[in-house]
Simulated assay, not measured.
Amino acid sequence: MTLVVTGGGSGIGLATVRLALAAGRSVAVLDLDVSAVSDVDKAISVDITDPGRVHRAVRSLGPLTGLVTCAGIAPSGGLLDSSPDELRRVFDVNVHGTAYAMQAVAPVLRDGGGGAIVTIASVAAHRGGGLLGGTPYAASKAAVIGLTRAAAREFAPFGITVNSVAPGPVRTPLLAEPEAFAATTLLNRVATPGEIAEAVLFLLGPAGRNITGEVLNTNAGAHFA
């Protein structure tokens, strides 16, 4: 039984993979660049915005226990600065890519008796962008939260929980000069990818079996600051 992690080649995704492996889970990574995860059970180079390739990759994995959707991009530009292609790209990766992964994995979980899905949102969805992402990015992550909550209702009869983790500033390649963002949080700190991964594993584990349709805000109070 395998846990699928999209975007598992770097950042929060890679930290989630490492933590899941340490916990004894079988893990498969879907990402454009899988060079950092040669030690997982299966690593498949996939463009998450290509639904056909996503479905084919998932079908090759056999029985599954869950899905974590970490694949994402974080453009900082505002709505007025974004071209139609840029707008389309951020929604294709962050929203459509998440939906394609859900569409591929959920039937496998259903047929196997259930499982858990965790999406990665952002505090930008609550704050409306600003320092932690531009308007298109914030809108895409708000859409991820809406998708998560609706899928939780749709998938509940199949024994599948669906929740989201919404980080604030995290030390990943997506965030340039992360320490400059500490002041945007109440705790005046920037999270490590491992700290966010701990929250993901909580929702995937036994303690998360009675939680669905929720957003776990792991942002050091950034949504209040």
Rank of each mutant, 00 (worst) to 15 (best):
A36H: 08
A191T: 05
P63D: 14
P136L: 04
H55N: 11
A166Y: 12
N94D: 11
L131A: 15
A23I: 04
E214L: 12
A22S: 14
I48R: 01
D85V: 14
G114V: 11
G129N: 10
A182D: 13
L61S: 03
P169D: 00
R153C: 08
T98W: 10
I48C: 07
A36Y: 11
A197L: 13
A28F: 02
T185E: 10
E214C: 12
L67N: 01
G128R: 14
S82N: 10
V29I: 09
G77Y: 03
R56H: 13
G78E: 13
N217V: 14
P84K: 10
A225W: 04
P173C: 11
A71K: 06
Y137N: 05
G128Y: 13
P193E: 00
P173K: 11
N217C: 08
L14I: 11
I145H: 08
D31G: 14
V17P: 05
G168F: 15
P193M: 09
N219M: 08
T192W: 01
A15W: 08
D50Y: 02
L132Q: 12
A191E: 00
I48M: 07
D50K: 03
L132D: 04
T16F: 01
H96E: 00
V105L: 09
A57H: 06
L175I: 12
S82K: 01
T16S: 12
V118C: 02
E179P: 04
A143S: 03
V29A: 01
V40M: 06
R25S: 07
L187C: 10
F158K: 15
A191M: 11
G168I: 08
L30Y: 06
P75H: 00
P193Q: 11
K141G: 04
A152I: 04
D39E: 14
A43E: 00
I120L: 05
G115P: 00
G77I: 12
T212H: 02
L64Y: 00
R149W: 13
L109A: 10
G13Y: 03
E214S: 14
T69D: 04
G213Q: 04
C70M: 05
S26M: 11
D50A: 03
L203M: 07
L201T: 07
E198K: 15
A36F: 05
A125H: 11
N217A: 09
G9N: 04
L3R: 02
G133Q: 09
F181G: 03
P75W: 02
M1N: 06
V37I: 09
T172P: 03
S164M: 10
V105N: 02
G24F: 07
R189Q: 12
V54H: 05
L79R: 09
N94G: 03
P206M: 00
G11A: 06
A99Y: 15
I44P: 07
G221P: 01
G112K: 13
V144S: 02
A143Y: 10
N94M: 06
I145P: 05
A199P: 01
L132A: 10
E154G: 15
R153M: 10
L3Y: 05
D41T: 09
G133K: 05
D81S: 15
G97C: 02
A121N: 08
H223V: 12
P51Y: 11
A166L: 05
S164W: 12
R25F: 04
